[in-house]
Measured scan of single mutants.
Amino acid sequence: LGPKYVGLWDFKSRTDEELSFRAGDVFHVARKEEQWWWATLLDEAGGAVAQGYVPHNYLAERE
């Protein structure tokens, strides 16, 4: 699936296409579209919880 990303700060969605998340949440990014990335929010087991657009500057690649 490629690298995983972690949320740096809490983010509250403003549209139906955006995905709310908390700092520390883990994502798989499917598409990078300039300022907004289409991402899947993952649970602790790595299963998909939700999908939506997230601001790229709120995520960091997980080491």
Rank of each mutant, 00 (worst) to 15 (best):
D25W: 05
A45W: 14
A48R: 07
T40K: 05
G24W: 03
L41S: 01
E34G: 15
E34F: 08
S13E: 04
S20V: 03
N57A: 08
Y53A: 01
G46A: 05
A23F: 03
A48G: 09
E34Y: 09
D10H: 05
G7E: 03
H56V: 10
A45C: 15
H28Q: 10
V54E: 02
K12C: 15
Y58E: 01
E61H: 07
L1N: 12
A30E: 15
G7Y: 05
A30H: 15
G7M: 05
L42K: 00
K32C: 08
G24K: 02
L59I: 05
Q51C: 11
L8P: 02
G52F: 06
A39T: 01
P3Y: 09
V49I: 12
Q35W: 14
G47E: 14
L42H: 02
A23K: 12
T40C: 13
E61T: 09
V26L: 14
F27C: 08
F11M: 01
W37A: 03
G47K: 15
V26Y: 10
F27N: 01
D16M: 10
G7D: 04
D10Q: 06
G46Y: 05
A60M: 12
R62Y: 15
G2V: 14
E44N: 11
D10A: 05
D10L: 11
L41G: 00
R31Y: 12
A45H: 14
Q35A: 12
L1A: 12
G24T: 02
Q51M: 11
E61A: 10
K12R: 10
V6D: 04
P3Q: 11
F21C: 08
G52H: 02
W37K: 00
A50K: 10
A50I: 06
A45D: 14
G52M: 02
E63G: 12
G24I: 04
S13T: 03
E33A: 09
H28W: 12
S20D: 07
V54F: 03
R22S: 12
E34D: 13
H56A: 15
K4F: 15
A48D: 09
R62I: 15
A30P: 04
D43I: 04
A50V: 07
G46S: 05
L42W: 02
E17F: 12
E17R: 12
W36R: 15
E18R: 06
E33T: 09
R22M: 10
F21K: 00
T15C: 15
F11K: 02
D25E: 03
Y5A: 01
V29A: 02
W38M: 06
A50H: 05
W37C: 05
G47T: 13
L8T: 02
F27A: 00
D10W: 07
P3H: 10
A45Q: 14
A39K: 00
L19W: 04
P3R: 10
V54N: 01
D16I: 10
D43Y: 05
L41R: 05
L19D: 01
A48F: 11
G2W: 14
H28I: 15
V29H: 02
A50D: 08
K4H: 14
E17M: 14
R22T: 09
V6M: 06
L41Y: 02
E17C: 15
K12Y: 14
A60T: 12
Q35T: 12
G24N: 04
S20H: 02
T40M: 11
W36H: 07
P3K: 13
D25Q: 06
K12L: 14
G46D: 08
S20Y: 05
G52Q: 01
E44Q: 10
N57F: 09
G2F: 14
H56E: 11
D25T: 03
D10C: 10
W36G: 09
E63I: 13
L19I: 11
G46H: 06
A50F: 04
V6Y: 11
G52V: 04
Y53T: 03
T15K: 10
W9Q: 10
V49D: 02
H28V: 14
W36M: 13
D25V: 05
V26T: 11
P3L: 11
A48N: 08
V6C: 13
K4Y: 15
E18T: 11
E18H: 11
E17A: 12
W38L: 08
D10V: 06
N57W: 14
L59E: 02
L19E: 02
P55T: 04
W9N: 07
A39D: 00
R62F: 15
A30M: 15
R14F: 09
E61R: 11
E44D: 12
H28E: 13
G52N: 02
R22Y: 10
G7L: 08
V54H: 02
L59Y: 03
A45E: 13
A48W: 09
G7K: 01
V54R: 02
E34C: 15
W37M: 03
G52Y: 02
A23H: 06
L8G: 04
T40S: 07
A60Q: 13
W37Q: 00
E33K: 06
L1W: 13
K12A: 12
W37S: 01
L1S: 12
R31G: 05
P55Q: 03
R22K: 14
W38I: 05
Q51F: 08
F27H: 00
W9T: 07
D10R: 04
R14D: 11
R14T: 14
E18A: 09
E44W: 08
L19C: 03
V54W: 04
T15V: 09
Y58A: 11
N57P: 02
S13C: 08
V6F: 08
V26K: 07
L59K: 01
E44T: 09
A45P: 02
V54D: 01
A39F: 03
E44P: 11
H56M: 13
Q51S: 15
K12D: 14
S13Y: 03
Y58M: 07
G2T: 13
L8M: 09
E63H: 12
W9A: 09
E61Y: 10
L41V: 04
H28T: 14
W38F: 13
K4E: 12
W9I: 10
A48E: 12
G47P: 02
A30C: 13
V49W: 04
G24M: 02
G46L: 05
A39P: 01
L1C: 14
L1F: 13
K12S: 13
R62E: 15
K32A: 05
F27I: 04
N57L: 08
V29R: 00
F21T: 01
E44S: 12
W36P: 00
K32V: 06
W38Y: 12
Q35V: 11
V49E: 03
G52C: 07
D43A: 03
Q51H: 12
E34R: 09
P3E: 08
G46C: 13
L42N: 00
T15F: 10
Y53F: 10
Y53W: 15
V49P: 02
F27D: 00
D16F: 09
Y53P: 01
H56T: 07
D16L: 11
D16P: 14
H56C: 15
L8S: 04
